[in-house]
Design a protein around this nucleic acid. Structure first.
Length: 322
DNA sequence: CGCATTTGACCTGCGC
DNA sequence: GCGCAGGTCAAATGCG
């Protein structure tokens, strides 16, 4: 099975993606022969949707981690890095996506953000991730909402003339959560309904970035979807904000009071893509047996990483897929 | 017809 | 101040 890996080197420049806001990158370590890469969502009531919501609870992240990255144990199959606070020291980042072939090489190397294992240039996946999270820290959603309201209300007026205060006021952003998945479709099903509101070409990348907004009224959650520059099969999804409503799937389930298997699936998964026990599929176009390589930490690291990973992934357990 | 997507224009922040 | 790049808007268009 093909595994993915994100490598962070402390001496490289921080990608702007990580330079602000609470951010979590969940990636796998290819160095393990036991290639666990799928989460046993069926064993958890909330599934990945709750996982995402849990990840959005960034308060716990900020309070439980002291450093820029929370380092996973070297023996773990996956690494989970979080950026709970602004970084002072110069750090360097690399998100290297290694296939199983490369995995053997780095098997001996400690799977830590400080690892000296193989690196790639800055315009790799790290570069793809290197978008503008370098904005002011996450602030209250209300502030953002208010500003957004202002923006919408006075858009035309602002186009003509902007007050000094508004001009100077820094844009505040919601906390973000990004992850990479292996998929041939950009927009992965996650249980929520999204409306695409923009698409931009990414500098130095042939792949555009798409912008989506949750269609639910009063929910201002956004997500951005782009492809990894180095490995176009990887989709980088960045969620911003927190849903203030249930997923349509959950609502449907509650209405009918009979458990729907759909709500137990991770985002971007359909029930018809499931072949028990663990053949989850990211893409609706990918055959059931194709591994999506949603990069998530293994049970070992989850259990080991007291206080952090449990906050990120509240109920998740990992099953093996080999 | 209603909703989603596309796409060019505009706004904003940041670095030089 | 200027230019660049990311982010957003909204009219036009497409689709079921």
């Amino acid at each position: 099975m093909e595994m993915k890996r994100a490598v962070l080197k402390m001496e490289d420049p921080i990608p702007s993606l990580f330079s602000d806001d609470y951010f979590t990158l969940i990636s796998s370590n290819p160095s393990s022969s036991s290639s666990a890469s799928f989460m046993d969502y069926t064993a958890n009531e909330g599934g990945f949707m709750e996982l995402l919501q849990g990840v959005h609870d960034f308060g716990s992240l900020s309070s439980s981690s002291s450093g820029w990255f929370e380092e996973a144990a070297p023996s773990s199959n996956y690494q989970v890095w979080t950026q709970p606070a602004k970084v002072e020291a110069p750090l360097n980042y690399e998100a290297a996506v290694a296939t199983t072939a490369a995995a053997a090489d780095s098997a001996a190397a400690p799977a830590t953000p400080c690892s000296n294992s193989s690196s790639i240039s800055s315009d790799s996946c790290g570069g793809a991730l290197n978008d503008d999270l370098s904005k002011p820290p996450a602030a209250a959603a209300a502030a953002e909402e208010e500003e957004k309201h202002k923006t919408n209300k006075h858009l035309k007026a602002k186009k003509g003339s902007t007050t000094g205060n508004e001009k100077k006021k820094k844009r505040e952003r919601e906390a973000r959560f990004a992850f990479m998945t292996k998929s041939d479709v950009d927009h992965l099903e996650d249980g929520y309904r999204w409306r695409k509101y923009g698409q931009k070409a990414v500098k130095n990348s042939p792949f555009p970035r798409s912008y989506y907004r949750c269609t639910s009224a009063s929910c201002n959650v956004k997500k951005r979807v782009e492809r990894c520059l180095n490995d176009p099969s990887l989709v980088i999804t960045t969620y911003e904000g927190q849903h203030n409503h249930q997923t349509p799937l959950l609502q449907h389930r509650h209405r009918h009071s009979s458990p729907s298997p759909l709500h137990l699936l991770p985002p971007f998964m359909h029930s018809d893509q499931l072949t028990p026990p663990f053949n989850y599929c990211v893409s609706s176009r990918i055959p059931t047996n194709t591994n999506p390589n949603l990069v998530l930490p293994p049970a070992g690291s989850l259990l080991r990483d007291d206080g952090l990973l449990q906050d990120i992934i509240p109920h998740a357990t990992i099953i093996r897929n080999n």
